[in-house]
């Protein structure tokens, strides 16, 4: 019953054009919770944070705390560049095999690549895969750790936002957006760096002929895959910290004196 009245009032206010206000006669003279019978409208539209604004706030927040963001993202950059390095190295080897040039095939065998005489493909070895998985795991743990620290650092900001009417999911969304953007920037640069290293290494080991054979599609796919993995890991790492932040009660945030 009570909440119906509240919703009624909310509807009444929404009916007025947004942004209309008068300083001389503010709404404070009206009852807070108007009486308005009838079906209650959906209440979850009462407070809003437009997506574009969320993106702007998240971006700004990264920019202002650039150093911290950098530290948070650094382990991701490293892990993703390793992933990309391994993938692109294999792309190069596959390109050399696909070229059908016996000399390139020989130099691959000399370099320690292990494949049968009939095989036209090299895949990453089990050992390589394990190292990659391990490095990605370490990276996620690092992100969780850094993000949890970021949440404790920002409890006052979060609490203030909640006092201003932010819903749990605004906070959640801001953290996810930040992690997404950080993840995208970090993973993209990591993937590019890894690919460049792999190409440079290929150039050094097998010469220009070999590197020329690498398929552009394969290369793009490897970089794209590494980037997507990085963004995914960044989001995975922030899930729990963001949840902690979203659940924070405003009173907890306000209690602590500076």
């Amino acid at each position: 019953m009570l909440s119906v009245e509240l919703r009624g009032e909310a509807r009444k206010q929404r009916a007025a054009p947004a942004g209309e206000f008068t300083d001389e006669f503010p709404m404070t003279q009206e009852p807070l919770f108007g009486e308005r019978p009838g079906k209650a409208p959906r209440a979850d539209r009462l407070v809003v944070l437009p997506f574009a604004t969320s993106v702007r706030i998240a971006y700004q927040s990264i920019k202002v705390r650039f150093f911290r963001s950098l530290i948070t993202t650094l382990s991701l950059v490293l892990a993703v560049s390793f992933l990309s390095f391994v993938d692109v190295s294999n792309d190069i080897a596959n390109g050399m095999l696909a070229s059908g040039d016996p000399e390139l095939r020989q130099s691959l065998l000399r370099a320690g690549y292990d494949f049968g005489p009939e095989e036209a493909n090299v895949a990453s070895t089990a050992k390589q895969r394990w190292i990659i998985i391990l490095s990605l795991l370490v990276c996620v743990v690092g992100i969780v750790n850094a993000q949890l620290m970021a949440v404790t650092e920002r409890f006052r900001e979060i609490g203030t936002m909640k006092c201003l009417g932010a819903l749990d999911r605004f906070v959640l969304r801001l953290f996810l957006l930040e992690a997404g953007m950080q993840g995208l920037a970090g993973a993209l640069s990591g993937a590019a760096a890894g690919a460049l290293f792999a190409l440079a290494a290929g150039l050094g080991r097998f010469g220009l002929e070999a590197v020329r054979e690498v398929g552009a599609g394969d290369l793009g796919l490897s970089i794209g895959w590494a980037t997507a993995t990085g963004v995914g890991l960044s989001l995975l790492g922030v899930l729990y910290p963001a949840w902690v932040a979203a659940r924070m009660q405003p009173v907890e945030a306000m209690r602590v004196e500076q």
């Binding site: 407070v47 700004q60 202002v64 705390r65 936002m161 006092c163 009417g165 932010a166 819903l167 405003p250």
Partner: peptide, 23 residues
């Protein structure tokens, strides 16, 4: 939701430590 709306529209808070969002 209603509580958030109350905090947003009906109450203004001022704190000893200002609580301005630093960023």
């Amino acid at each position: 939701y209603e509580l958030a709306w109350l905090r947003c529209r009906k109450i203004g808070y001022i704190f000893q430590t200002f609580n301005i969002i630093q960023v």
